[in-house]
């Protein structure tokens, strides 16, 4: 459905995207992860004809968007960054404008506008000029316009960026709903929890290079490090902390307060069980022994650290 083949983009000497290869199958929701400047938005901008590639191909439904953007984008709905709308138009007029460009009949536009405005919860604002909208409302409308023509592919660039917690929840709900409807969704995000929650697979990039691309459940298992928060009923002395540091699987010990430490360690569930026993043997009266952070976050930090 989406195929990136040796996709490259240079800005002067800087390679923002470096021979990127990626294949997104039909009906999948794929998260596109990476730190700031990793090349996520640049990749998405190439895929949506906002910038041109320096090399390679970005195939959408088998059509290269670099060479045939009009044809390639006919089956795509996109939200890139937080787009601005023409403030003098209402949502209904904006959808009519974009629908007309896509060749939709006026009756279809009317019908689909009702549907998507309902989907993104903007029905009551349908005839209000967008100049008065909040950022969250604009973001929801951006998703709405991307859905108007029932595209086969949805490309979303940080769809919850800049939204308040309520707005983020609303947008995630919309994406989940779209996923159920069978859309092929390619979304970039900074928010690992969001990707873990919403996506089937995730691709991690840094310095424009793909680090890993797999299903979420497989990625969780790839993480080499984990963090455990240990809370003790009694004070954890410096001697005990030194003892913990001496354990073979421990990478780092962070003292939060006299009763709490956070341990970074290598290994699997087995190693975690051994660690609990070892910590108790050192005299810690453990009242809580819980994992901190998401497995994907651990993997992300690990891979990004390795790539730099």
């Amino acid at each position: 459905m989406i195929e990136l083949q040796n996709l490259s983009k240079s800005f002067g000497p800087i390679k923002a995207v470096n021979n990127l290869n990626l294949d997104v199958p039909k009906g999948q929701t794929v998260g596109f992860l990476g730190p700031n400047g990793a090349g996520k938005t640049t990749t998405i901008k190439i895929m949506t004809n906002l910038i041109t590639a320096s090399g390679g191909k970005a195939l959408l439904q088998g059509v290269d968007v670099v060479t045939h953007p009009k044809q390639a984008l006919s089956s795509v709905g996109a939200v890139v960054e937080t787009p601005e709308f023409y403030p003098y138009l209402t949502p209904v007029e904006t959808l009519a404008y974009l629908g007309s460009i896509r060749g939709m009949h006026s009756d279809e536009i009317k019908q689909r506008s009702n549907d998507v405005l309902q989907e993104v919860k903007l029905e009551e604002w349908r005839n209000t000029r967008i100049g008065k909208f909040s950022k969250g409302m604009k973001q929801r409308l951006a998703i709405g316009q991307a859905l108007l023509h029932e595209p086969e592919i949805l490309i979303l660039d940080e769809p919850t960026s800049g939204l308040d917690p309520r707005g983020m929840v609303e947008v995630r709900e919309i994406i989940r709903s779209l996923k159920k409807q069978g859309y092929t969704i390619f979304m970039s995000s900074h928010l690992l929890g969001e990707v873990q929650e919403v996506c089937d697979s995730a691709a991690l990039i840094d310095h424009g290079k793909l680090l890993v691309y797999d299903r979420i459940e497989n990625l969780k298992g790839l993480s080499k490090v984990s963090k455990i928060e240990v809370i003790s009923a009694t004070e954890i002395s410096q001697t005990i902390v030194s003892g913990i540091r001496g354990l073979s699987s421990i990478r780092e010990v962070e003292t939060v307060n006299g009763h709490t430490v956070v341990l970074t360690y290598d290994g699997s569930d087995e190693a975690r069980a051994d660690l609990l026993q070892a910590v108790q043997k050192l005299g810690v009266r453990v009242t809580s022994f819980s994992q901190v952070g998401l497995p994907l976050e651990m993997l992300y930090m690990d891979l990004v650290k390795e790539s730099r």
Partner: peptide, 27 residues
Amino acid sequence: MVEGSPHAQKVPSDIAQIPIIWRYELL
């Protein structure tokens, strides 16, 4: 549903898109 986007194949020609842009720009 999204199976085979119904609008993918009927995007107007470049010439036909010009009056659409014209109308909304004038607005």
